[in-house]
């Protein structure tokens, strides 16, 4: 019987702790989209939206929506003091040019070198779509991937080489999963933390590349 892992909300909660006060941050689809729910009230983070907003506040209250003030997922939002509007090219000057402090995206696979696959499932129906993922992967200053550690069939998603279509090469800095926090370093993948109740061996058992384990690995604080 496998040990319990974190929920998607708890992955988001742990990822939120990577973001310092005052940071500029882009949140992608999936688990990253939950991260803003877990910031301490007193902390200010300038959320970036690829349609041309820096300094997005919470979702707009019912009756106060402005359909010209929406995030990249079409959700009506609000602005923090200090917010700015700009065009879509400048929005990606910020992502690709490495001007945002952190970018968070979901992932299908991450390789031991930090290669990322997250835009296309092989054999999926439809045209597929890239959106801003490849611009972010190419230039993000610090890219954090938030994902489940394994597939539904318990196959590793942290692999030696990505078998899914690539989004970018050697772009991931940190992976936050339902089992661990892992940093991509020059020498390989360093296991920084494990989820409560798990051991480094539990994480290694469902991780394809050999993890670098420096002494005793602390448990995540949520």
């Amino acid at each position: 019987m496998s040990k319990p892992r974190l929920t998607r909300e708890q992955i988001a909660q742990r990822a939120a702790r990577e973001l310092p006060d005052g940071a500029s941050v882009n949140l992608g689809w999936g688990i990253p989209n939950l991260v803003s729910n877990y910031l301490p009230k007193e902390q200010i983070v300038y959320f970036h939206s690829e349609n041309g907003i820096l300094g997005m506040g919470p979702r707009a209250a019912g009756g106060e929506e402005d359909l010209d003030l929406v995030d990249a997922m079409k959700v009506p939002v609000t602005l923090l003091p200090g917010a700015a509007f700009f065009n879509q090219a400048d929005a990606h000057v910020m992502t690709r040019g490495g001007h945002l402090d952190f970018c968070l995206m979901g992932g299908l696979q991450v390789s031991q070198k930090g290669d990322l696959a997250n835009w296309k499932v092989p054999g999926a129906k439809g045209s597929g779509g890239i959106g801003g993922a490849m611009d972010i992967a190419a230039g993000a200053k610090h890219l954090i991937i938030c994902m489940e550690h394994t597939t539904k069939d318990d196959e590793p998603k942290i692999v030696k080489r990505c078998s899914y279509p690539l989004t970018g090469l050697e772009c991931v800095k940190t992976v936050v999963t339902d089992m661990a926090v892992i940093d991509v370093e020059a020498g390989g993948l360093v296991l920084r933390e494990v989820a409560p109740g798990l051991t480094a061996e539990d994480v290694q058992a469902v991780t394809e590349p050999k993890l670098i384990i420096l002494g005793s690995v602390p448990e995540m604080k949520l």
């Binding site: 065009n87 090219a89 990606h92 992502t95 597929g128 959106g131 801003g132 611009d135």
Partner: peptide, 23 residues
């Protein structure tokens, strides 16, 4: 409507990364 016509090969598509489309 696009996806149905794409599947039927009535429409072709060139996918471009969003920021590169801008540039």
């Amino acid at each position: 409507y696009f996806q149905d016509q794409f599947a039927a090969k009535e429409v072709t598509v060139e996918l471009v990364a969003q920021g590169i489309l801008c540039e």
